[in-house]
Each structure stands twice: as C-alpha cells, then as structure tokens.
Design a binder for these strands. Structure first.
Lengths: 140, 140
DNA sequence: ATTGCAGATGCAATACTATTGCATGAAGAG
DNA sequence: CTCTTCATGCAATAGTATTGCATCTGCAAT
C-alpha cells in the first residue's frame, strides 16, 4: 500500500493529511501485526522518523473512532484492512503473551454483527475478539 | 451464592480460602456487572471491609488464570458464572463508556470455540468480546 | 490444640500507560 | 500568499499495574 493511498484514507475521513498521520499508517502497515503506541514510535525511530508519543496516542484514538483501526484488549492497534466494508473483524488473542492472530469466518462475523444489532450497538468496524492461551503459553 | 460456595471455588482451585479472596468474590457477585479492581475496592470499603488494591490486583490475576473470572478489554472483571462448564462466554462492550452486556448464543460460542481449537488455543474459559458503540454513545 | 511453614497480604516504591493545557507550527482553502 | 483552523510537541498530571520485602495467616502435620 502506497503512502498516497494512506492520504486517500485520511481525506475520506476528513482529517488533514499530515506527515505524522501518514507515518503512523505506514508503520502499522509495515509491521503487519497489532502494535502498541510505543511499538509504533519505536518502529518509526528506527526508520529515522520521529513522532511524539502523545501525538501517536491522539492519532490512534481518532483512527479508532473512525474505524480505521481496532484497539484490542491488550491495547495493541491493528489496521482495519478494509474499513469500507461494514463487516466485523476477528482476532484471536493470547492473554499471556499478547500475540494476535487474525481470522476470517463469515458465519461468526455475521452472527456477531446480528448480536450487536440486536443490542442496538453500532460501530464503523465492530470488533470480535476471542481471548485464550496460545499454544506457547498453555501450561498443560 | 453463599460465601461457603466461594470457599468451594477456592478449594477446587488450590488457593487458600483467605478472607480477601472471599471478599473479592463476594463483591463481584454482588455487583453483578463487570468492575475494575478499584471498583471492587470501593464496593468493599462501603461495606466496611478493606482489601488492599495491590492484593485485589494479585487476586484477580490469579482468578483470571484459573478461569474464575474474565478480564475484558476495558480492564473490567467479570465473574464466570459457571467456571465448571468449558463453554465460551460472550460480552458486548461499548468502547466509549465501557458498559458491558453479557449475551448467550450457543451457536456463536460454538463457532468461537472451534476457531480457538483450530489455532490450538486453550483456556479454562475462552472469552468472546464484541466491541462497538452502545446506543448512548453512538454519535449518529 | 500447637506448631511450622508455604503461601498470602500490606506497604512503599516503581514502572507503565494514557490524558490534558497551552504555545507553536503546518495544512489547505480562498 | 495569507489567513484560519486544526494538529503537534512539550511538560505536567492522572490513571493503571507490578515488584521487593517484611509480616502475617491458612492449614496440614503432629
């Protein structure tokens, strides 16, 4: 995904296409995996860019509200690959090590969306998170 | 649920049935709704008991690992009503105000459990959390 | 009932995570 | 190019969680 596509995302969201916002989108896209605000800062620092942590907090909160990314229970952030599709997104998260696996299951996502609607819940990107222990963290 | 039942839960978990652990279980049971560690402390203080916040953190972390309670993405804690049943538990959570509604949906819980197993995930009590905006927080 | 000890608690200190107010700076419309 | 509005950086602050250590307690063995 090019930085110009990121600019498009920002324009559609009514946000100014600032360098910092593009860098945060770049970082999340490059890391591929859900990352904490400080992970993002670290990633950018390694690449020679600097964005103030407070700014990352502010930007990611805005993105979350706009459905551009998800905030998982661990606080890590994951880009919504297709924010234009109204469907729900599924994550499997280990509550010990925090590792995250995305999954795609039409049926479960449909059910989750129905349940959300039943309770008059709404969100630009409903989030489904299943939490347990991953194989590495399972004590048994 | 009587305090003696709480003692049973503790015995089965291999934990000493201390006053503090029983008080935390009592509090969560009485509050009925997911609560933060400090909510628990406040509830107990009002009833004339005191448990040190650090102790509540430690106790709730143990309970989480044993599948006695769930830690939601907001950090709030919810008693697993039936820790003996291996089934998953469902929560609908507002990412704005943090309010939580429990739901029961056999089908979705079955699917979620299957997905967890597919990925070799295990947990005494798999947690399903759907996050969105509740009616009160929905800006539209 | 008494004792011994592993495990639990309380406290203080510390670390980590997140938010806010304000002055400065940049984006983008005209 | 200029102006207005929104965004950023910084410092300060607030909220959340963890750790080391001394003391205490549940509970099992006697």
């Amino acid at each position: 995904m090019s930085s110009c596509q990121h600019t498009t995302i920002l324009e559609r969201s009514g946000l100014r296409a600032t360098m910092q916002r593009r860098l945060v989108l770049d970082a999340l896209h490059q890391m591929q995996t859900p990352a904490s605000p400080y992970d993002i800062e670290h990633h950018l620092t390694k690449r020679g860019s600097t964005v103030h942590p407070v700014t990352i907090y502010r930007i990611t909160k805005q993105f979350e509200n706009l459905g551009i990314l998800h905030r998982l229970g661990s606080g890590r952030l994951s880009l919504c690959k297709h924010p234009e599709t109204e469907g729900a997104h599924g994550y499997l998260r280990c509550r010990d090590c925090g590792s995250v696996t995305e999954f795609q299951n039409e049926h479960l996502q449909r059910l989750a969306t129905d349940i959300a609607e039943e309770h008059r819940y709404h969100s630009p990107a409903p989030l489904i998170e299943i939490t347990g222990l991953c194989p590495s963290c399972d004590p048994s």
